[in-house]
Amino acid sequence: MECLRAQQLLSEAIDVAISDDELAQARAHCAGCDECARFVHSLERIASLPAPTASTDLVTRLVALGTEEAAVLRAIPAESPVDDALVGEHTAAPVRFLPSWWAPRLSAYAAVAAVLLVALVATGIGLGGVLSPKEATVGTAEDTRLQTDGGAALSAAPTPDSTQEATKDVGYGTVAPPYVVIDGLVYTPTGPQAVDEATLVTATPVLTSLGATSEPVLLPAYRVTTANGVAVLRLGDGTYLGFSAVTRTFGGRTFVLASGSLLTAYGQWPILPARFQPPTASDGSPTFSFFGKDDIGTLMYVPAGGRPTDGFAIAPGTGPEDPAAGNPNWTWWQPL
């Protein structure tokens, strides 16, 4: 037997069963060949060494991730097509990306926003009348001078310069940061953004002043499919203003701030979505009960029977580093 063949067989024997006869021939060859003997010596030594192992800490984290995922899956209604996915072709859509409650909720947000916008346009009633007192923290006379003609407002959309000017006026102590609400989720501006229009998905148009005191206008909104939690508004001059979702993390997973109200000017605080009655006690009751802490130690609350992986509430009075810092209202955070 040639050296190369003998070495190939002995290498292969580590992984699969080869015939006794071939193995015996290879070993016999190596017994009389110094080069192959050295090869076998090294080969066996290398094969005897342990492979890299994941640290206990890493495994613990991975198990925790699995526990979180299991909780998410348990929360999905039984009609989820698990069996079909297993027995059929490989499915492209992961289970968790499209939980069953998401689609109707998105539709509901869009419907609510549309109804509110139509009502505003038709009646000329300002948002000051429908927002809670705590939301209008930058209430000025100009806040109520809302644009009633959506088309005219769009053509008079503000530019990024006016946005930056307004942003400077808004502090984080008594007034809210610059927020807009896109499809029910709260975003904060990141500045002018170049976009590839092929990556945009149309969202519900946003009524915002892009400032604390100027008049709200209706702006086309888009989600950027290539970046999670990123959206853009198209301004009157055709350029885009970028926004990133306001988020926090729990168990390594990202949750985004939802808003139960349209935030039509910077400086307004998000409130709980309408389906939640604001708690009357600091412990969250009767709407929520304490669950635990998120990744930065902020206390989390969940509805009765709820799981934190489906979303959770945060009480007012969080620390200065918290993404809800300064908000006098309870807030709701849902999976991104």
Binding site: V63, G66, A70, D83, V95
Partner: peptide, 12 residues
């Protein structure tokens, strides 16, 4: 299948 049904032990 067990994992997809939300079984934590299967994930582990």
């Amino acid at each position: 299948r067990a994992a997809l049904s939300g079984d934590e032990r299967a994930f582990e």
